[in-house]
């Protein structure tokens, strides 16, 4: 099966590793992975800042870039949710129809793995906790797939944090408009996470993780954050075996 990887602009700017890891995982699953070079941004950040026209320009571009693939796999839960939920709301006429159609073929990474992998041999010992990113959880309604996928990794223990479903305070330009508030929300999340037995925080959205680890670094709190694709790639056969070794 040929799939296109939808990497999200965070991967281009500051978080390349999750996208590269996703390629390895998908290939290990037997997929032919294409990473369309024409992709840039799904338009979410412009849309959520109130700029509908620039957003829809990027959305239409997304449609042209990914329109021909049988399956598109999104490395970001939030960006995938934008394709599913906002494209049909924002785009009009033919573009909207194409977008709805593309959304039907667009998968969030863990969901794709959960549905298409039967034989993947995953092993990595360690302790993690999962952060449900808001749009993945509420807009895509995806709570089970990441837990399912993490559950397949031999040796991995998943510790639920009490506020796993609570927003980390990133919220796109919200993080810039209201930095103190955004950081206070991160602090609550960091506290919840550090109270578990997990050594690493795992999520499906690099932006949440950049915000949380940036905050933790400023406060000198040891918080190690990684994208679920990175974890799965490290858990592939021939990997380091332990989370500590893989992500020291």
């Amino acid at each position: 099966m040929r799939v296109a990887l939808f990497t999200s602009c965070a991967a281009d700017l500051a978080a390349p590793r999750p996208a590269l890891a996703a390629v390895r995982v998908l290939e290990a699953m037997g997929m032919t992975v294409d990473v369309p070079g024409a992709q840039t941004c799904c338009g979410q950040v412009a849309l959520n800042s109130g700029h509908r026209e620039p957003a829809s320009e990027l959305m239409r571009r997304w449609g042209r870039t990914f329109g021909e693939y049988d399956a598109v796999v999104g490395v970001s839960g939030s960006c995938t949710a934008t394709v599913h939920h906002q494209f049909p709301r924002v785009l009009e006429d033919r573009a909207a129809r194409l977008a709805v159609d593309a959304a039907r073929r667009t998968w969030e990474f863990t969901r794709f793995v959960a549905h298409h992998d039967a034989a993947l041999d995953l092993a990595l010992s360690g302790d993690v906790t999962w952060h449900d990113s808001c749009h993945m959880l509420r807009s895509l309604g995806e709570k089970a797939a990441p837990r399912d996928v993490l559950g397949r990794v031999r040796g991995l223990r998943v510790h639920e944090a009490p506020g796993s479903e609570v927003c980390c305070g990133f919220g796109g330009t919200f993080a810039l408009k209201y930095p103190e508030l955004s950081c206070a929300m991160a602090d609550r999340k960091i506290t919840d996470v550090t109270r578990t037995d997990a050594t690493h925080l795992v999520s499906s959205d690099s932006t949440c993780l950049l915000h949380l680890s940036g905050r933790a670094a400023r406060r000198r709190v040891p918080l190690r954050a990684l994208h679920v694709a990175e974890l799965l790639a490290a858990a592939l056969p021939g990997g380091p075996g332990t989370l500590e070794e893989a992500f020291a």
Partner: peptide
């Protein structure tokens, strides 16, 4: 505004993915 409370993400790797 990002740096009000957070360390900046490392943008030295911008474009590295491609």
């Amino acid at each position: 505004r990002w740096a009000r409370g957070r360390e900046l993400p490392d943008l030295r790797g911008a474009g590295r993915l491609r």
